[in-house]
C-alpha cells in the first residue's frame, strides 16, 4: 500500500510541506519545488503598497500541480483569519487554509484560542483547515472536534531553527491525535525533520531553513530526503536506548522463594 499523506479528501505522496517566505528571489521557488518534490506550499496575502513599483506575481512561480496553502499570517483574531481565508478562496487559491493567528508579538507564538475559533468556522464552510498551534493535547482534540484536517504543532518558534524544542509535547500529540500531525516552524536542519518523522509525525513544514540556505534547491532536496528517511525509520520500528537487565533481582526475587 502506498504511504500517502491524507489531508481532507486529498492525498499527497510528499510529506514535506514548504513555504514561499524569505526567498532572496521568487524565481528560486520553482527550482526548489522541483528539487524537493514538495506538493504543498504556503503563500501569504498582503495589502499592496499603491505607491511601490509593481511586484512580481508569486503565484506565477508555483506550478499548477502544487497545492497552494494560503496562510492567515497577519491575523490577530479568528475573525481576521476567517476574512483572509475567504479572500484567498475567492481569489482562486482553492480550499486549503493554514490558520495562523498570532497575538504575541514578542515571541510570535500562535494564539490557540482564536485559532480554534477560526477552525470551527472555516471547517463548517468546507475549507481544508490546517491550524498552526502551540503543542497542546487538549487543543489537538478540540481541533479534531472542530473539523480540522490536521494539527500543526510548532517545533520551536518561527524562524528560530531550534528544531524540536517541544518534542515531549509533540510526542504526546502524535500518540493521541486522530488527525495527521504536521510539525511546523522551527525546523532548521534536515536531521531535525528526520527526527520529527521518526517520532511518527505525518509531515513537516519547512520554510525559513530552505529559503535562507545558500542553495535553496539543494536544501529542499536534502529536507525531502530527510523526511523520507525519517518516515522509513518510523515504519521500520527502530529500537530505543539500551536498558540492560541488572544481575540481582531485588524486586522479583521473592517469586523464587
Amino acid at each position: 500500500m502506498e504511504d500517502r499523506l491524507a489531508l481532507g479528501d486529498r492525498y499527497f505522496s510528499s510529506r514535506l510541506l514548504t513555504g514561499t517566505g524569505k526567498f532572496a528571489s521568487n524565481s528560486l521557488i520553482g527550482p526548489m519545488l522541483a528539487a524537493s518534490g514538495s506538493q504543498i506550499i504556503t503563500v501569504a496575502l498582503r495589502r499592496v503598497d499603491p505607491k511601490a513599483p509593481p511586484q512580481d506575481n508569486i503565484l506565477s512561480h508555483i506550478p499548477d500541480t502544487v497545492t497552494l496553502l494560503p496562510n492567515t499570517s497577519g491575523a490577530r483574531t479568528a475573525k481576521e483569519a476567517v476574512r483572509i481565508a475567504h479572500i484567498a478562496r475567492e481569489a482562486g487559491c482553492g480550499d486549503f487554509i493554514k490558520i495562523e493567528v498570532i497575538t504575541d508579538m514578542q515571541y510570535l507564538l500562535p494564539d490557540n484560542h482564536e485559532t480554534l475559533k477560526a477552525t470551527e468556522i472555516l471547517a463548517k464552510e468546507g475549507f481544508i483547515v490546517l491550524p498552526y498551534v502551540m503543542p497542546d493535547i487538549t487543543i489537538s482534540r478540540r481541533l479534531y472536534d472542530a473539523g480540522a484536517a490536521a494539527v500543526m504543532p510548532l517545533g520551536s518558534p518561527i524562524g528560530s531553527n531550534l528544531g524540536l524544542e517541544m518534542k515531549p509535547m509533540i510526542q504526546r500529540i502524535i500518540e493521541t491525535s486522530k488527525l495527521p500531525v504536521i510539525v511546523d516552524a522551527g525546523i532548521g536542519r534536515p536531521s531535525q525533520a528526520a527526527e520529527a518523522m521518526e517520532m511518527g509525525a505525518d509531515a513537516v513544514l519547512v520554510n525559513t531553513a530552505i529559503a535562507t540556505a545558500r542553495d535553496t534547491a539543494i536544501a529542499g532536496r536534502a529536507f525531502a530526503m530527510a523526511v523520507t528517511a525519517g518516515r522509513m525509520a518510523y515504519h521500520a520500528g527502530m529500537a530505543g536506548h539500551s536498558n540492560r537487565a541488572r544481575a540481582s533481582s531485588p524486586l522479583t526475587g521473592f517469586l523464587r522463594e
Partner: peptide
Amino acid sequence: IELLSFVGGG
C-alpha cells in the same frame, strides 16, 4: 477599497 496580493510567506 483593499488592494491585496499574494506574497511569500510561511
